[in-house]
Design a protein around this nucleic acid. Structure first.
Lengths: 194, 194
DNA sequence: GTCTATAAGAGGATAGAC
DNA sequence: GTCTATCCTCTTATAGAC
């Protein structure tokens, strides 16, 4: 009932955010997409920012679930787990299910930072990735020129990389092919490693 | 006179676009920043979209100039030239001089595509980079898993990578340090090449 | 070409009935 | 909680005097 409706709202927000980003998404659109009046929407979520926040919390939770599944897999070493989480992000983005937030909107950033659910989800995921980065580093599998922070942010940034979308829009390549290229670039670089 | 004023306008647009992106930049702000009335601004540029377009043409011209200077340098092979143009993009972004366009705004994209000056600048730069990519590939210096198109788009995407900005905002690192990390990740990858 | 003033409309948010 | 109707601000763009 209430939970189901709010899930439907966040699902719509998620898709619209993935398609056009925060500024270009309007609350009217969300209401129309869900099939309820705008005023009803505001009974569930008191502002556009908190609507976006709910979508972010949702996707971070999904990422966390994906990470937990990988963590339980003994066949993968730490570097492979990092690669698989990057694959998950790219896949989610290519399927139009990755909400895009502007890196720049300060009012939105402030509200996100103030939201406990968001910060908890972000921190939880960061810690899991941080553990894997530490482990992969100890295994000698990471580029020694890069500090852990750079590795972490680079992985997060795969969620909003514009390159997969540009390649997909050409219509020439399958999602699987695009993802392999992106992973090859991200982990092995543009240059030939000899 | 007219030329100087329009240069000042585009310079302002460029900085504001770099700071907040197309949607969050308002024409009122631009007018205030230049120090003229909004109506005067519209005498020079008939729409907000064409204002952004002028900023893009300007930065593409600067990139082209940077590329020409590199082309004339016999000390650099093709891969080194690609690396230097990526460095230029990262540097420009970190200095707040890289206008950010939303990948998603279709009305803006349509106007850009329809603008001859924009398309010429984009094509000219792409051709120069394409030549270097071909050459670097012939030299056996590029990752053989990646088609030229992926290499080209990856280089263009350095201009809007969010990672440098996040690293800079921490206040812990110099621009030069950040750029070296970004180039190491982009060209050599996150993983250790053995 | 520059200004002041204003039109025209989009979009976030709310009032109040049911 | 859902609706219809409305408010109000912000923003793009233009009218018209100088």
């Amino acid at each position: 009932m209430l939970r189901a409706r709010e899930d439907a709202i966040v699902e719509s927000v998620n898709r619209l955010l993935a398609g056009k980003g925060f500024e270009l998404m309007t609350v009217d659109e969300v209401a129309a997409d869900v099939g309820i009046a705008k005023a009803s929407l505001y009974k569930h979520f008191p502002s556009k920012e908190l609507l976006a926040c709910a979508a972010m919390v949702r996707v971070l939770g999904q990422a966390r679930d994906a990470a937990r599944a990988l963590q339980a897999d003994p066949a993968l070493d730490a570097l492979a787990k990092l690669r698989e989480i990057a694959r998950w992000a790219l896949q989610t983005q290519l399927q139009g299910r990755m909400p895009l937030l502007p890196a720049q909107n300060s009012s939105l950033r402030a509200e996100l930072m103030a939201d406990k659910a968001y910060m908890d989800a972000l921190m939880g995921l960061s810690e899991q990735l941080g553990d894997w980065i530490e482990q992969a580093s100890a295994d000698g599998r990471l580029n020694p020129a890069l500090p852990p922070e750079v590795v972490l942010y680079t992985l997060f940034a795969r969620a909003c990389d514009p390159v997969p979308g540009v390649l997909k829009s050409s219509g020439q390549y399958s999602d699987a092919q695009i993802i392999e290229w992106m992973l090859a670039q991200c982990f092995n670089g543009l240059a030939k490693g000899d």
